[in-house]
């Protein structure tokens, strides 16, 4: 793994307009993705992980979205580019994989044409060359009969095959960065395993950097090199994958890990996080955003202006509350145990 930064997010803030006010869905995110590195961004719905992905690609609807900060890629700040300058980067240097392979493909276009389309905009290949390359790509993503699939329409393929086509589209121009937004969520387990293995394989071959957006900690554990845990628009913990699973520090990370019905442990009860994820308009913007949901921890244990602090080498945690955090179950504090 080289240490060259591939993508650098600096104080990225993405705000959406709701009733003439702007609310930040991604709030002051600073994160670096190195070449050939898989960084997972994990969190529950509404934490801002998908908004973050779309901000990097510049795919938010214009007029209703405000982007601040820097997204540095190849020496350029993507946020300052015009749409047509951005179009030269999208699909060529940054590819994207979406969640639902059924809706992510145009139902009226053959798979072959959809793969060739990005080459049309980023290369000068002849149509014969494009077809040859599309067939190679289909083979590369494990489609058993590329010639046939080339001519097929998306509805004629199974979910797993469709997702392979989506991946082929994303890597068509050999991008240095791929953003995968919940790439396996809509798939069956066995297919999910195949797609994960395929992505890992391709990543190793092509030395691509991957931003993996997911809510599934199992997928994170299998794929990521580093993990950023997001809550309410902020990164609350950032560490390499082994550290994060072995020594999770932030209360939110620990709560999430404890709520998974894992095949490894057979606990009777799962941990439940108190309360609900606040909506964009009701987000507490001051202090620790997770405070309300761990109200058995004393107020003075939280910081007033929590920052993402390096607590050990390459392990970052937001707010000091992690130092004092315990689960109510651990000390038999039944008043706070939520069922």
């Amino acid at each position: 793994m080289s240490n060259q930064p591939l993508l650098e997010l600096k104080n990225l803030r993405t705000s959406f307009r709701i009733n003439n006010n702007y609310y930040a869905a991604v709030d002051d995110v600073t994160l670096t993705i190195k070449e050939n590195e898989v960084v997972a961004i994990v969190g529950e719905s509404g934490c801002g992980k998908s908004a973050l992905a779309l901000s990097i690609m510049g795919l938010h609807p214009q007029g209703r979205t405000k982007l601040e900060g820097n997204v540095n890629f190849n020496g350029k700040n993507l946020l300052s580019l015009t749409t047509s300058e951005m179009n030269k980067i999208r699909g060529k240097d940054i590819g994207m994989i979406f969640q639902d392979p059924l809706t992510a493909l145009n139902p009226l276009m053959t798979c072959g044409r959809q793969i060739e389309e990005s080459m049309t905009y980023h290369t000068n290949l002849s149509s014969g060359k494009k077809k040859q390359k599309a067939l190679e790509l289909l083979k590369k993503v494990g489609i058993p009969n590329p010639e046939r699939t080339y001519k097929q329409f998306p509805h004629e393929l199974s979910g797993g095959m469709r997702q392979r086509v989506v991946i082929a589209i994303a890597i068509a121009c050999e991008p240095s960065l791929v953003i995968a937004d919940e790439p396996t969520t809509a798939l069956d387990v066995t297919i999910q395993a195949q797609i994960m293995d395929l992505l890992k394989d391709l990543q190793r071959q092509m030395k691509t950097g991957i931003i993996l957006i997911t809510h599934d900690l199992g997928v994170v554990a299998e794929m990521a090199d580093r993990v950023a845990v997001m809550y309410a628009g902020e990164i609350v913990e950032l560490a390499d994958v082994k550290t994060l699973f072995k020594n999770p520090l932030h209360p939110y990370t620990r709560s999430l890990l404890n709520s998974i019905p894992s095949t490894a442990s057979e606990k009777d009860r799962l941990h439940v996080i108190k309360g609900i994820v606040p909506s964009l308009q009701n987000l507490p913007r001051e202090g620790c955003r997770f405070k309300e949901r761990i109200d058995w921890i004393d107020d003075h244990n939280h910081e007033e202006h929590p920052i993402l602090r390096e607590v050990e080498a390459n392990h970052y945690v937001r707010c000091t509350c992690y130092n004092h955090f315990h689960f109510p179950e651990e000390i038999g504090d039944s008043k706070y145990v939520v069922s």
Binding site: A193, K200, D216, L217, A221, E222, K242, F245, L257, A264
Partner: peptide
């Protein structure tokens, strides 16, 4: 096949899982 497809929550077992 089904059981082996479940992602393991322990990143250390990643290679073994594959």
């Amino acid at each position: 096949r089904l059981i082996s497809a479940i992602p393991d929550i322990n990143p250390e077992k990643r290679v073994r899982q594959v």
